[in-house]
Amino acid sequence: MRVAEFVTALALMALSAMFMAYGLALPIGWEASSGPGGGAFPFWLSAAMFAIATAILIREWRSDPTSRYARTPFMHPESARPFLTVALSTIAAVALTTVAGVYVALPLFLLFHLRVFGKIGWITTAIMVLATPVVLFLFFEATLRIILPKGFTEPWFGPLYRLVF
């Protein structure tokens, strides 16, 4: 378990540093006319993730390597299948986002996780799967004017853009 904690903390620190560098490519301070700069949220969330990963690393470094906790497995065998299911479905959703866009990938991801993986009823699943893209569009694109990736579905949004913009 101890090795897994070290590796995980170091991997999170590396990812955080990379995200912070990308966040610094945009302004991270307060913009007088528009509020927080475009890199503020990515930078500061990544900085918090870096700090937490550092705390995990320090905690493990100080812990007793002979303790029972240090000898327990990182993942129990019965946890491996659900973990892999979530990890692979997340990777698939991200890959699908680049091709089909957020408004296709996210509902499919939700459908899988709510209905198939979580065994939630059809009515609740349908409400979430149909409402989430609508809320995302209204919040990000109509309100914040942040255009989300649409992939091959981009032409379908022409009428909505004329209505909203």
Rank of each mutant, 00 (worst) to 15 (best):
M1P: 02
M1L: 06
A4M: 08
A4I: 06
E5G: 06
A9Q: 05
A9L: 11
A14M: 13
A14H: 14
A17Y: 10
A17T: 10
M18C: 10
M20I: 07
M20A: 11
A21P: 05
Y22S: 15
Y22R: 13
G23V: 02
G23T: 04
L24E: 02
I28K: 00
I28F: 02
G29L: 06
G29C: 11
W30P: 11
E31A: 11
A32T: 07
S34C: 11
S34L: 07
G35F: 00
G35D: 06
G37F: 00
G37D: 10
G39T: 09
A40P: 12
F43N: 10
F43W: 06
W44M: 13
L45D: 12
A47P: 09
A48D: 07
M49E: 02
F50C: 12
F50A: 11
I52S: 15
I52E: 00
I52V: 15
A53C: 05
T54W: 09
A55V: 14
A55G: 12
I58K: 09
R62W: 05
D64A: 04
D64W: 05
S67V: 03
S67P: 00
S67Q: 04
Y69S: 13
Y69L: 14
Y69G: 13
R71E: 14
R71F: 04
R71N: 14
T72F: 13
T72K: 12
P73M: 08
F74W: 15
M75L: 08
M75K: 04
M75V: 12
M75P: 12
P77D: 03
S79G: 15
A80G: 09
F83D: 04
F83E: 01
L84K: 00
V86N: 10
V86C: 08
A87F: 11
A87P: 08
A87S: 12
T90F: 03
I91Y: 09
I91S: 09
I91R: 12
A92G: 13
A92T: 11
A93L: 00
L96C: 11
L96Q: 05
T97N: 10
A100C: 07
G101L: 01
V104R: 00
A105C: 03
L106R: 07
P107N: 11
L108I: 03
L108Y: 04
F109G: 02
F112H: 05
F112D: 08
R115M: 14
R115G: 08
G121A: 01
W122Y: 12
I123E: 09
T125V: 01
A126K: 10
V129L: 07
L130G: 01
V134A: 01
L136N: 02
E141L: 01
E141S: 06
E141K: 04
A142C: 07
T143I: 13
T143P: 13
T143M: 12
I146H: 10
I147H: 13
L148R: 02
L148Q: 03
P149N: 01
G151E: 03
G151A: 01
G151Y: 06
F152K: 08
T153D: 05
E154H: 03
E154V: 05
P155D: 08
P155H: 03
G158H: 11
G158N: 12
L160A: 04
Y161G: 05
R162A: 15
L163Q: 03
L163S: 00
V164A: 00
V164M: 00
V164T: 00
